[in-house]
Nucleic acid binder design. Sequence first.
DNA 1: GAATATTTCCAGTTACATCA
DNA 2: GTGATGTAACTGGAAATATT
Length: 204
Amino acid sequence: MNHKVEDHIALISQLYPGLYTQMVPKQGESKPRRRRKKNTGEGVGGARKRKLSAEQVNFLEMTFGDEHKLETERKEKLASDLGLDPRQVAVWFQNRRARWKNKKLEEEYTKLKTAHESIVVEKCLLESEVLKLKEQLSRAEKEIQRLSDRADRVSTSSPSSSLSMAMEPPFLGEFAVLEGYGDAFYMPPENNYIPGMEWINQYM
DNA sequence: GAATATTTCCAGTTACATCA
DNA sequence: GTGATGTAACTGGAAATATT
């Protein structure tokens, strides 16, 4: 790009406002783009060619399938084969590359979106699982507290009661210490479900 | 080696054709 | 007639390369 030309235009537009519709942008502003004249079909080469023919497009597509960029010689050969201006072939390839890139981006976006959605679903499931487990833990802790309180009451009660305890079979569902066994173990209550204590069976 | 010109590519835009 | 969409062509900037 010739910056001297731009500087001249800027100077002239300052000296003669209105002569050029394009004003030089201030720093930080986006440059106003020069508007193209409407094509009247009187330009270089006569009437403006619009749509390329189906055959031309097919051939260009085939070539694009092989190579996304053309060497100068290849471009000129292709242009002469198709009866087009090399510039047209170059422009077609530029536009085609842009379309291809957009399509790739869209595909990538769709893939990422799908992956994101499935991860969000998985996250929700895991969060609800965590909630369930927290509830279970809370119930288990309450149960442990309840049993611990009961054990305290038993140990601080009258000797007669401790005697009767000695004669009775162990309380089902109680943590107990049997003679000869140093470790506490859990005696599951027969047909006696304690809510929130299911987890403990996994470790029995 | 520095300055300048040329070429090529890309991103964004415009003009126009076509279709619902 | 009109808005949406697709596409050929254009613009300006950046980077690479050639020339002076």
